[in-house]
Design a protein around this nucleic acid. Sequence first.
DNA 1: CTATAATCGGACACAAATGTCTTGAGGAGT
DNA 2: ACTCCTCAAGACATTTGTGTCCGATTATAG
Lengths: 150, 150
Amino acid sequence: MVLSRTSQYAIQALIYIATQPAGEPVLNRDIAERLNVPSAYLAKILQNLCKQGLLDSFRGRLGGFCLREGMHKTSLMQALALTEGPDFTKSCILGLKDCSDETACPMHFKWLPVKKKIIALLEDMTLEDLAKAVQTGKYRLSDLPSGVMA
Amino acid sequence: MVLSRTSQYAIQALIYIATQPAGEPVLNRDIAERLNVPSAYLAKILQNLCKQGLLDSFRGRLGGFCLREGMHKTSLMQALALTEGPDFTKSCILGLKDCSDETACPMHFKWLPVKKKIIALLEDMTLEDLAKAVQTGKYRLSDLPSGVMA
DNA sequence: CTATAATCGGACACAAATGTCTTGAGGAGT
DNA sequence: ACTCCTCAAGACATTTGTGTCCGATTATAG
């Protein structure tokens, strides 16, 4: 429901990176291990987030990925726009190409307020906020118990 | 966002069938044409809905599909349970296998009320209601203008 | 300069969703 | 009985999502 695996991995990784000291690159391998996610696939996803300007990457020794300057305030909405495409919230729930107030599907007006709630929620949550929540130890980022964290 | 194409086609078709006189089978070909959807694929979907007991099918001349007796009151939630699987609303938004109040992902408590709204909405809307809405002429089931209807 | 450690980038592999085609079975009209 | 018309069912094709692998590239340490 709602999100592709790619997006799920991306968000998990972004939050994890946000929990780590800013400016110190995090290894793809470490993220993958911590999240229990295929590392080669995760690398692709992180590469893409680099191209889109959300992450910085560094090759060679002491390399890795870290959030680009100022990107701690990135909202989930902005992050998902990068992984799911810019208008992943625009679509009609029945799949109609053109479903607006004027040309509405029978669910349009009922669905609209719910969709707005979803969007508001996604715009409200930032990587920083979520990282802080994880750091309290009350929430987990993967199926592994959070105590596994180094 | 939210629904697979298969589910979208299924719901469109169910609503369309519900707009037609009860007891008179509707041709797969007609539905596909009306909804502008691949007919062979739609046939598969309708077959499945038959097996699951939501539709009745009739072969030969004057054959076709129609809603099984009493199924006009079926909610979208029930219909989607047939196409998406019984617990398509149960999953964690970050994809964690085990995400409950006790083992929560950082989005869990924010997402929960929104999810409840979605579920309530889907449980509230019935095929009958949606069919009536379409019959007013104010809403459309496909990208084709609704005037195309016979 | 060389060895090492890490990402980059593209090719490849696999699986699931989506879509097409063909053949067979069953019911209605003549 | 014969002929249409319809769904049933499975094989096949295409596309997309997911996942893997490897050589190239870049940066650091010695």
